[in-house]
Deep mutational scan, measured.
Amino acid sequence: KVILLEDVKGLGKKGDVVEVKDGYARNFLIPQGLAVEATKGNLKEL
C-alpha cells in the first residue's frame, strides 16, 4: 500500500491510500515523488 502525494490518473487523488504492485510503487511512484509507503508513521501524518 502507498499514500499518494499527488493526484495520479487512474489510481486516485492526493492523500488516498491505495494498493499497488510492489514493483510499480518502488520503480515508478516513489522515485517520481508521487507516493510514499503506507507505514504506520506515514498514516499518522495524514
Rank of each mutant, 00 (worst) to 15 (best):
G12P: 00
V20G: 02
V2W: 14
D16S: 12
K44E: 15
N27K: 11
I30P: 01
K40C: 11
E19M: 11
A25T: 04
G12N: 00
G33P: 01
G10Y: 09
K21W: 12
P31H: 15
N42E: 11
L34G: 01
L43Q: 04
K44V: 14
D7Q: 07
L34Y: 11
E6D: 09
G41P: 08
G23N: 14
L4S: 00
K21S: 14
E19T: 13
V8S: 02
A35Y: 02
K1R: 15
V2Y: 12
F28C: 07
K9G: 11
L11T: 05
V20N: 02
V20M: 04
K9P: 14
K21F: 13
K1T: 10
D16G: 05
K9S: 12
I30Q: 03
K44F: 11
G10T: 07
D22T: 10
L29H: 01
R26A: 13
G23V: 12
K9R: 12
G33W: 03
G10N: 13
A38D: 11
D7T: 10
V36K: 10
V17A: 05
N27E: 14
V18T: 03
V36C: 06
L43S: 05
K40H: 15
G10C: 06
L43V: 05
I30H: 02
V18Q: 02
D16V: 07
A25Y: 08
L5S: 04
V18L: 12
K44H: 14
D16N: 08
L5Q: 06
L29I: 02
R26N: 15
L5V: 08
D7R: 07
E6M: 14
Q32G: 10
V2T: 02
Q32R: 12
D22H: 11
I3M: 10
P31L: 14
I30E: 02
D7H: 09
L4M: 04
T39G: 09
A35R: 01
K13Q: 11
I30W: 03
R26G: 12
L11R: 02
T39W: 06
A35D: 01
Y24W: 10
V36D: 04
K40P: 15
G41T: 15
V18H: 03
R26T: 12
I3Q: 08
D7N: 11
N27F: 12
T39D: 15
E19R: 14
K14A: 09
L34P: 01
P31W: 14
L29W: 02
A35H: 01
L11N: 01
D16C: 11
K9I: 12
E19F: 13
K21L: 12
K13R: 11
D22W: 10
A35W: 01
K44Q: 15
A38E: 11
V18Y: 03
V8R: 04
I30N: 02
Y24S: 04
I3F: 08
A25D: 12
L5C: 04
G41Q: 14
L4T: 00
E45F: 04
N27H: 13
D16A: 12
G23K: 11
L11P: 00
D16W: 15
E19Y: 14
V18P: 01
Y24R: 03
K44L: 14
L4N: 00
L4D: 00
K40A: 15
G41N: 15
A35I: 02
K21I: 10
V2G: 01
E37H: 07
N27R: 10
D22M: 09
D16E: 09
K14T: 07
K14E: 05
T39L: 06
A35P: 01
G33S: 05
N42H: 05
G33L: 09
K40V: 15
E6A: 13
V17Q: 10
V2C: 07
L43D: 13
K13V: 09
D22A: 09
P31M: 15
L5I: 12
E6H: 14
D7A: 09
V8T: 03
L4G: 00
K13C: 08
V2D: 00
I3G: 00
G33A: 06
G15I: 00
